[in-house]
Design a protein around this nucleic acid. Structure first.
Lengths: 236, 236
DNA sequence: AAGTGGTCTAGACCACTTG
DNA sequence: AAGTGGTCTAGACCACTTG
């Protein structure tokens, strides 16, 4: 009773090429067999041979150019990446989300906020500070600046059921964001709000997120999390 | 003088499908036209229609199953990712890498290191502490545990030209790693080594990296960086 | 002029799920 | 039984780089 597994031919060819590349047998710059070569040596049609090469190209192992040939790429050092977990989203999903609005005002941008939001000084903004809780346990502080012309109804929302970020995301649709992460020591005020007592607990992760719409910044959020609670793990 | 740009037909079809999906016209779960449908409506061969669908499938927009059809996937919330920049690699590349070996010993694992390296208590390890400098400026501290049976020559290397991590990477080939990031306050000793004087400078980013080979941990590295210097940016 | 990869065709057989 | 996606064929034309 042998289990006969049908292996597609393009996979055989792909494996053949991948082995030569990964073992270092064909170092970077080596010209690999052409579609026609492979078609002949493996007795397949050109389209099948092509598929093996095309998939390796898509995987970033090859550099292909018409008229010239296919060449082994030099491995691009992939930098490890870490996933940013949105604690608030998790709390919302678990029904444990609570939000306390510490402040919420319409202001004019000063020089500092103007430069970080890439707008002129004196433009209208909303500035708010939120404390998020896991049920009754404080777990994140957020300073939020919102472009009031792009999200005019921001201050009229009720943030007991939805988070400010998810409201902005909903208004703007799915826009691009950039993130900046570093480590800070919580200020006395922040320590008080977050109920951080111990010496070591002062170490916090600060994450700045800016949401872009077209060339403009919709909002700038700075979240502060206790470093012990908020650990970030890689998935590659 | 019109510039006539030849647009591949599969791209036209792909765009057509993508538009319907992205505008929400075809919400998640919607069945999209089959290969045969598309081939007929766009007057192309089935292989060309297929390519449009296959590429969208690869992009994660579709769920395809033989006999059943192709369906719009519900968008998978892509968590933002942050790139971990290896400061040491950058220093090496710039010729500014300096390394001071603060300690290097052969030890037996105690209960704590045993559990974090997932080995038994009492196994042979190398334990070392390095201080890395940008020319003469301290910029990173590293506590490193190395499985001595997997990297036996670790202590015999000269780390003035290559970094310990790059040596291990070279020995093990390209293995999988996992990372864990959080925020800590530098201990008095660490502050001294890193020459951190100011109050705010105590906030550091701590990054644990474990290198896996097969099911075993080759090394466990804990690096400590001043939070001000070491900012992490998203590229998406 | 010969070879390369990029696109495309009109067929084919297959295992599979659907009505 | 009719339709689906997955694989594959043996051709074709094209713009391009190479000797």
């Amino acid at each position: 009773m042998e289990s006969i597994v049908k292996v597609p031919r393009f996979l055989v060819i792909k494996q053949y090429l991948e082995n030569h590349i990964n073992t270092g047998n064909w170092p970077a710059g080596t010209r690999v067999p052409s579609e026609n070569d492979l078609a002949e040596t493996f007795s397949v049609s050109r389209m099948t041979a092509r598929r093996a090469l095309a998939e390796l190209d898509r995987q970033g192992l090859l550099l292909r150019s018409p008229g010239s040939g296919s060449f082994v790429k030099k491995i691009d050092k992939k930098r490890p990446k870490i996933e940013l977990v949105d604690v608030i989203e998790d709390l919302l999903a678990a029904g444990r989300y609570r939000c306390r609005v510490l402040s919420m005002d319409a202001i004019q941008s000063d020089s500092e906020t103007a430069s970080s939001m890439e707008i002129d000084i004196g433009e209208n903004l909303f500035k708010a500070t939120f404390l998020y809780l896991d049920l009754d346990k404080p777990c994140q502080l957020e300073h939020l600046y919102v472009n009031s012309s792009l999200v005019p109804a921001f201050m009229k929302q009720n943030y007991e059921k939805i988070s400010p970020s998810s409201y902005i995301d909903w208004i703007t649709g799915d826009c691009e964001s950039d993130y900046l992460l570093n480590s800070v020591i919580a200020s006395p005020g922040e320590r008080r709000e977050l109920a951080l007592t111990g010496e070591d607990e002062q170490a916090c992760i600060k994450l700045r997120r800016r949401i872009w719409m077209g060339g403009n910044i919709v909002s700038l959020s700075v979240t502060i999390n206790p470093g012990q609670l908020y650990q970030l793990q890689s998935v590659i």
